[in-house]
Computed example of a mutant assay.
Amino acid sequence: MTKWEYSTVPLLVHATKQILDNWGEDGWELVQVVPGPNPEQLVAYLKRPKQ
């Protein structure tokens, strides 16, 4: 059975792709993006297999 670790990451609207690309290079997979505390910010939920 695969065990997962999770992370939440603040995303800035003007740099979303760059931020997600950086996390993706470290093996993180995007699960969901939800609105953040203000209109210019989003929050990404990520997961990757636990080492």
Results as ranks from 00 to 15, higher is better:
residue 12 L to M: 02
residue 29 E to L: 08
residue 36 G to R: 03
residue 34 V to A: 09
residue 31 V to H: 00
residue 5 E to C: 14
residue 6 Y to L: 03
residue 20 L to R: 03
residue 9 V to G: 02
residue 28 W to S: 05
residue 51 Q to H: 05
residue 33 V to Q: 02
residue 46 L to M: 14
residue 43 V to S: 06
residue 42 L to P: 01
residue 34 V to Q: 07
residue 51 Q to Y: 02
residue 28 W to A: 06
residue 36 G to E: 05
residue 48 R to M: 10
residue 36 G to I: 12
residue 27 G to T: 11
residue 47 K to N: 04
residue 3 K to V: 14
residue 31 V to W: 01
residue 48 R to Y: 06
residue 37 P to R: 08
residue 11 L to I: 03
residue 32 Q to N: 12
residue 47 K to W: 01
residue 2 T to R: 14
residue 38 N to R: 11
residue 15 A to M: 06
residue 45 Y to P: 05
residue 18 Q to D: 11
residue 27 G to E: 09
residue 3 K to T: 15
residue 33 V to R: 01
residue 28 W to K: 13
residue 42 L to D: 06
residue 7 S to M: 05
residue 46 L to P: 03
residue 29 E to I: 12
residue 35 P to C: 06
residue 26 D to K: 14
residue 13 V to R: 06
residue 42 L to T: 05
residue 37 P to M: 11
residue 22 N to W: 10
residue 25 E to V: 15
residue 35 P to N: 08
residue 45 Y to A: 13
residue 15 A to P: 13
residue 14 H to G: 03
residue 45 Y to Q: 10
residue 24 G to F: 00
residue 26 D to N: 10
residue 49 P to N: 06
residue 37 P to F: 06
residue 1 M to I: 12
residue 44 A to K: 00
residue 32 Q to H: 10
residue 13 V to E: 02
residue 37 P to Q: 08
residue 38 N to F: 08
residue 7 S to K: 14
residue 27 G to W: 13
